[in-house]
Nucleic acid binder design. Structure first.
Lengths: 201, 201
DNA sequence: GCAGATATACATCTTACAGAGGTATACTGT
DNA sequence: ACAGTATACCTCTGTAAGATGTATATCTGC
């Protein structure tokens, strides 16, 4: 997903709602897009400058003369147009880099029980996120009348479905692998005296 | 996930199974880790050099004297040790950058029906991957006796659960948003003659 | 047996961007 | 008045993704 400057799109999307400063944008991305989009601190300011130079946003407050003045940006018609065009393009998928599953895949090369511990830990984190999301959802319920409300609902639902599946997998997998790893460990200790069976490959 | 050189770990993991060349590694990552790990073409060779310099792998074929000779690498004890230590560390999560959900989130700023089309397209792709995974799984079933077989099973199961959830979400969401977008479009065309209601914000 | 096409194997270069740090201003207690 | 801390904004640097380049091996038809 390099070479695409995908940072610009969440910025344009948020500026469609209302004018914001770089700092606000950072906070909004962190707060509302968090579950499916994370932005790097250092990418927002360069991107704002690029968007301003290409006329997709304008600075409506702050002259950049005195230092550290609050700079507020608003989207232009061109920006809205570009965003619209981008939305119509087919979305590209992030190339997966799932360390958790990679460690599961090579669990036999790690220390005894380490990966099972990761799975238990993962289960717990997912459960925590699940509770947090449910709480946030009840907060958002108050804005039922917002035109974007139905879309927000579907996004909550997406998170809920994924987390449910994740939890189910953790439970299944622990049930399947826990007895197995115990048995293997026993077998290994039994044979280690003789031939180091566990090192064979 | 920068600054971590995470590319080294799938390489070490694969070399635990058997010695391979850079080209082989690329093919193996593409073929077997594909569903949760993707590696960039240009990252494998620099990483191999780094691993060789730090003594985690050794070249067992190919002298790098004559050009374009096949270079085969094997893991060393140090490499195995490092991998083991890494597996024990808590896995870090990839920061999400889901263009698909981002477009869903801002669907009202895109052209009429564009995002619904993306959702239908997504549904179809997931269904295709689902069928492909099922086929691959029947192939792997033949290696029931492999020590890694139970782990492979859980990884297949992970993919299956996620894809099921994904499909369910697509169906739900299409059912929820299709009638809505149609109604809004009608309302918009009705009022556009008067006040451009759709532009209000 | 060789000319051209294609696949394989390896390498480099450019650019996006994550992470961390830095600086200036505003506020707050003493 | 002054130190300490929080806020708002901005910069720098290393890592790695992805594109692209190039050399060698293998195949194909004539």
């Amino acid at each position: 997903m390099a070479r695409t400057q995908s940072t610009q799109y969440p910025i344009l999307g948020l500026l469609c709602i209302k004018p914001l400063s770089g700092y606000d944008l950072r906070a909004e991305i962190e707060g509302t897009l968090n579950s499916f989009w994370r932005e790097s601190e250092g990418q927002i300011y360069p991107t704002l400058r690029m968007l301003e130079e290409t006329g997709q946003i304008v600075r409506i407050e702050g002259q950049r003369k005195q230092a550290r003045e609050r700079q507020v940006y608003a989207i232009t018609d061109l920006g809205r147009q570009r965003l619209r065009a981008w939305i119509a393009e087919e979305p590209r998928m992030q190339s997966p880099r799932n360390e958790f599953l990679l460690k599961v895949w090579m669990m036999r090369h790690g220390p005894e029980g380490a990966v099972l511990a990761h799975i238990r830990q993962h289960r717990q984190q997912v459960a925590i996120r699940m509770a947090a999301a449910a709480e946030l959802q009840t907060l958002v319920e108050r804005n039922r009348s917002f035109p974007d409300f139905p879309v927000w609902q579907t996004l909550f639902r997406y998170g809920a479905l994924m987390r449910e599946a994740e939890l189910a997998w953790c439970d299944e997998t622990l049930a399947a692998l826990e007895p197995l790893e115990r048995r293997e460990a026993k077998a290994a200790t039994c044979t280690r005296k003789g031939k180091k069976l566990i090192e064979q490959r």
